[in-house]
Simulated scan of single mutants.
Amino acid sequence: MAKVKVRGKGSVYKMERGKSRGKCRKWQLRAEIDGEFEGDEGYVKTRVFHGTYSEAQDAKDEFVAAIERGEVRRERGMLFPAYAEAWLAERAAKVAYDTLQKNRCHIVCANMHLSKALLALPQNQPNAPLYPAGGAPGSRPGALPHFGRPRYLGPPPRARSTAG
């Protein structure tokens, strides 16, 4: 299992509003984790702990140590840019050069909006492709997934006249 680098020593936040540190018994343990690859800014891993503040401090130290040992893993999946590049590489042998260039331009635009989106794989089959060999139902083989048909929202609202 890969080891992970934690920034700092972690932190403890109280989760019960209006209670002093001595009365609070619910804490959030937080650890900032460095990115695993270039372009990944990292993320924050959290855990809830029930007990006193000093017990939470000890639990935070154990939580950070467990992360650094690699016992606490990041959710499965990959960022959208890595998925898009893998999709383009797979598609390169199937389509014409001009189509591939058009797809590359679309992905550049999509990366501007989805560069930090984590694409999770299905929970029951983490190594399975997103769709079976035939592709998504009703789609062409090798096409990007379609998330529903665009809906007509009606005409734009009329501007109110200020003359009176």
Rank of each mutant, 00 (worst) to 15 (best):
I67D: 02
M112D: 06
E41P: 08
E68I: 06
E38Q: 14
R21W: 07
E36I: 07
E62Y: 04
E71G: 08
L79D: 00
Q125M: 13
E16P: 01
A31P: 06
Q57S: 09
S11I: 01
C105M: 09
L100W: 13
N103D: 13
L88N: 06
K19A: 00
V44L: 13
K26P: 00
A65K: 14
A120I: 07
R30C: 14
D58F: 12
G51R: 00
G35T: 13
G51I: 02
L29F: 06
V6H: 06
V72N: 03
Y53V: 00
S20T: 15
K5F: 02
K45W: 04
V6D: 05
G10N: 11
I67V: 09
K60Q: 08
V12S: 04
K23L: 03
G18Y: 02
Q101P: 00
V64H: 06
D40R: 11
L29V: 03
V12W: 05
V12G: 12
A92R: 15
K45V: 08
F80A: 08
P126Y: 10
G39R: 14
R7S: 07
Q123P: 00
E75R: 03
R17T: 09
K60N: 11
C109S: 11
A84D: 01
L118H: 14
E16R: 08
H106A: 09
R91E: 06
G39Q: 12
V72Q: 05
A65R: 15
K102L: 12
M15A: 11
G51K: 04
W87L: 05
A93H: 11
E38M: 06
I107C: 08
P126N: 11
R73S: 09
A92Y: 07
A65Q: 10
R91S: 05
S115T: 05
G39S: 12
G39C: 07
G51H: 02
G77T: 08
G18N: 12
P122D: 08
